[in-house]
Amino acid sequence: MKTVLRLLATASAVAFASPAAMAAGELNVYNWGNYTSPEMIKKFEEKFDVKVNLDGYDSNEAMLAKVKAGDTGYDIVVPGDYMIKVMIGEGLLEEVKPNAMENFKNVDPNWVDVWWDPGRNYSIPYQWGTTSFTVDTAIYDGDVDTLALLFDPPEVLKGRINMLNDMNDVINAGLRYLGYGRCNGNQDELREVLALLSKAKPHWRTMDYAVIEKLTSKDVDISQSWNGAAMRARAQRPTLKYAYPKEGFTGWMDNVAVLKGAPNLDNAKLFINFMMDPENAGLTSNFARYANGILGSDKFMEPEMLSAPEIVMPASAPAPDFVTPCPQEVVDLYNKIWTQLKQ
């Protein structure tokens, strides 16, 4: 579905390319699919008389591949934490110094000195959340807080599982289930992970990023998912429950950044400052259903967001695990495991 959205988004970006010339300026935003609040975009367009063109991707890697290929024409990208670090290292991001901008005072201090962009010279918080899984409790009414539901599923969930089509998310979940460390180059442990995944795969129905659609269409009853996606799916399928597995789960933050060589650099900077305004961060959260790291934005968020079980973690849950980029030899091993799994 995200692929579909991406293609549709590309098509509409092309279709609307000509009237865009009539606005005072343009801004080309390349964000994850189904992740940008139309209301927030409209507000930005009206405030600055800028035409925003939106295009979508479904994984950090897909975005990186396209940006690396060059000449994308995009100004704004929204990479995940580790991808910000990679892109800074590769010289793909413009150092726009958000920390010197007017609205920077709104950024939660906890999200300023982050390992992927210490001091925030390149990027600002967009949304942050967790990656775990969500289960229909009408189908399975046992304890949901264990990864066993994905790797050693009870009878009712067999063949009803969607995994993210994401090498890191799947392998990391496997490592946690077996109690091994992330970014793991230990060959014996990885051999066990491959065996675990291969044994579990026949029980998985799909491997796809389109989590919300897979759950709401009832194609599956349990899916690896991001917490905001779980909340949006629950709106249409109320018996869904987001799990906080005792073995651990991933924490992440997506960040707004400007691409080096952005054709509309001034508008891009305006956008960065605009996104640190609590009201605009609130609009984004109301749409995407994640927390945002901007202080004061909760005043502009729908009340149900502030108490949603997908966002407010229970005290018993382990702390979210922010995974750093792995060394190349580990990535190579992961790639081999992934291909082996998907053959």
Binding site: T3, V4, N165, K201, W204, R205, T206, M207, D208, K342, Q343
Partner: peptide, 9 residues
């Protein structure tokens, strides 16, 4: 991609 479910390439 759409009909195969992404499990096998």
């Amino acid at each position: 991609e759409l009909l195969g479910g992404g499990k096998k390439l």
